[in-house]
């Protein structure tokens, strides 16, 4: 599974802003709203997919993200690794 953690909308993202400012110097124009985030890749043992998602969602909210400023989204990727 993959857990994507991103800053909630409305929370300033200094990393995304810095990347965005660097782009014109490299010749990339017309790229805006750059937001930086993190992805975590996990193997989850569970009886079925729904249980695995629940487990990943729970750990994403408890540890991988800080709900005060971040959102966590769980994606199922089967057959990986």
């Amino acid at each position: 599974m993959v857990v994507d953690v991103n800053l909630r909308s409305g929370i300033a993202d200094p990393e995304g802003a810095t990347i965005e400012r660097a782009l014109p110097a490299l010749g990339f124009v017309g790229v805006t709203n750059v937001r930086a985030g993190k992805s975590f890749y996990l193997d989850v043992e569970a009886p079925n997919e729904m249980a695995a998602v629940d487990k990943a969602q729970a750990l994403a909210e408890r540890l991988l993200s800080n709900p005060v400023i971040e959102d966590a989204r769980v994606r199922v990727v089967t057959g990986a690794s």
């Binding site: 929370i11 300033a12 200094p14 990393e15 810095t18 800080n66 005060v68 400023i69």
Partner: peptide
């Protein structure tokens, strides 16, 4: 203390990194 929920809010990376 903020991560533990004993104080409100959070600390983010400094403006300008």
């Amino acid at each position: 203390l903020t991560e533990a929920g004993l104080l409100p809010g959070a600390l983010q990376k400094n403006r300008g990194l």
